[in-house]
Every structure is written in C-alpha cells, then in structure tokens.
Amino acid sequence: MDKEQFIINAFLNSINGDDGAIVDNWCFSKDLFFENVHFKRSWMSLEQIASKALLINISDAIVMNAKPKYALLGLALPKNLSKAEIKALQKGFLNTAKKFNIKIIGGDTISNHKIDISITLISEIFKKPVFRKGLKIGDLLAFSGNLGQSLKGLELLQQGKKLSPNHRFIKPKIRKDFFYEIAQKLSCAMDISDGLSKDLSRLLKINNLGISWYKNLNSYELYSGEEYEILFAFNPKYENFIKQCAKKHKVKLNIFGQAVKGKYEFVGKEHHF
C-alpha cells in the first residue's frame, strides 16, 4: 500500500474516497497547489498560478456533476511578496471565480517561505451526483480531449523553455458544458490528475473490474499528469448520444476500452508518495 492510500484508509467512511464528498445536495472538495511541488515561480505568472489552483479544484466538482458556488482560500505567502504581486494573485483568483460564478467567502493566510495554496470548494449537485463507483461489466471506457500535452509541457519547462499562456500545463481545459449534458448517462467518472493509467487503476479497483483495451495508447497518453480531462464510462446504448454531445461541444471523444472481469495494476511512477 502506498502512503497516500495508507493516509486515506485512516479516514474511510461512506462519504469520502471520491473527487468530492457529497453531503445532502452539496459537494465539498479540496486541492493543494504548492510551490516547488506543482509549480515553480519561474514557470508561471502569479496570476496564472492562482487561476490554475482554482481550476484544478473546479475540475473535481464538475466530475461529481456539481456546480461550484463558494470557495475558501488558504494562502501561505512569503513576507517579501509585494502588494503588486499579491494583487496579481488576487486577480487570478477573482477572474477565474467570476468565470465560473463562484463567490470567495473566506479562508486563512499565513507567512511562509514559499507560495502554498489550499482551496476548499463548495458546490451544488446538479440533479444527481456522479461517483467513481458504478462501473458495470460491458460499460465503455472513455476520456475527453488529447492526453500527453501536460507532461510534454513540463519537460520543456524543466529544460528552461517557456510555454504559451494557453498551454494545458498553464491553463487546464475544463469541459463543464459537455460533462453536465452527458452526466446522467454515465456509470462513473473522475478527472485525470495523476495520469490516465494511475487514475484508471483507481476507477477499476473501486469497482473490482478490469479492462479490455480497444486502443494502444503511448506513454504520454498513459502517464501525463495534470491533464484535467475526464475519464468516464457508460452503457453502450448511450454511445451515439455521447458522441453527438462531444460533437456539439467540440470535444474529442476517445473510447479506449470496455469493462470486464479482472483487475488492472498500475505500473509507473507515483505522483504522490
């Protein structure tokens, strides 16, 4: 058992263990975005850092079929950060929150030697939540968009190169309109934050199933983290409907396998510890 799962197991109950926790008609989720773990200051502007920190939280809410309403910010910031730099962070949070109709309602700040951001998002369920659990034998497994660009971008940054402001590593694409339209036809879903292979192993493990592959995916498609595309499954009878929705929202649909009896073991580098 990896240490992440060891920690999670200490707090297991009927509510946690998904992208967010569902309580009544609300979804509560949290993500961390830490300097020198998720980003370097030389890679992104302060506005981009704040925006991405919020976007990765929004991604968790959307795949639960929830609409983000409120956010709590935890900010650990260096003492030498100027007011202009703090305003840049504020701009990133506020502009992204406005785009998704989110109200920032509080939080906490402390002094730190680097920028560490913790966000709690409170979201309202749209009709019914979508969980990681619910996969059935015969369901088709799919993901949205193109995978691999985030890892390629990270490699360029590590070589000292710069990325376009619209690069996926800087600005994740959130497929909210597409997902909300297909949500009620899905068996299960989660966002791809730790790479398709790792997140697929989580999805299949919680459902005690394996996969029959339809496609040979390359290492970038399998192992690129921080993609924030959607991994989901559905009964084959909904295939035409989902294809039509993908076309309507101009989202690339990749049906890459089918759920079968068995299990799937992740083999690769852990993104956590």
Rank of each mutant, 00 (worst) to 15 (best):
Phe6Gln: 15
Ile8Met: 07
Asn9Phe: 06
Asp18Met: 01
Ser29Ala: 13
Phe33Leu: 05
Asn36Ile: 06
Val37Ile: 15
Arg41Glu: 14
Arg41Met: 12
Trp43Gln: 09
Ala61Thr: 05
Met64Trp: 00
Lys69Gln: 14
Ala76Lys: 13
Ser82Trp: 00
Ile86Val: 15
Ile86Leu: 14
Leu94Lys: 14
Asn95His: 11
Asn95Leu: 12
Gly107Tyr: 12
Ile110Glu: 09
Asn112Ile: 02
His113Val: 13
His113Asp: 15
Asp116Tyr: 07
Ile119Asp: 06
Thr120Leu: 02
Leu121Ala: 04
Ser123Gly: 04
Ile125Glu: 01
Phe126Asn: 12
Lys127Arg: 08
Lys128Trp: 08
Val130Cys: 12
Phe131Asn: 08
Arg132Val: 02
Arg132Gln: 12
Lys136Gly: 04
Leu141Ile: 07
Leu147Arg: 01
Gly148Met: 12
Gln149Ala: 07
Lys152Phe: 08
Lys152Gly: 00
Leu157Gln: 05
Gln159Met: 10
Pro165Gly: 09
Lys171Glu: 10
Glu181Arg: 10
Glu181His: 11
Ala183Glu: 11
Ser193Tyr: 03
Asp199Thr: 00
Arg202Lys: 11
Leu203Asp: 04
Leu204Gly: 00
Ile211Lys: 00
Lys215Leu: 10
Phe234Trp: 08
Asn235Met: 07
Lys237His: 10
Tyr238Lys: 00
Glu239Phe: 09
Ile242Met: 05
Leu253Ser: 03
Asn254Thr: 01
Ile255Lys: 01
Gln258Tyr: 05
Gly262Phe: 03
Glu265Tyr: 11
Glu265Val: 15
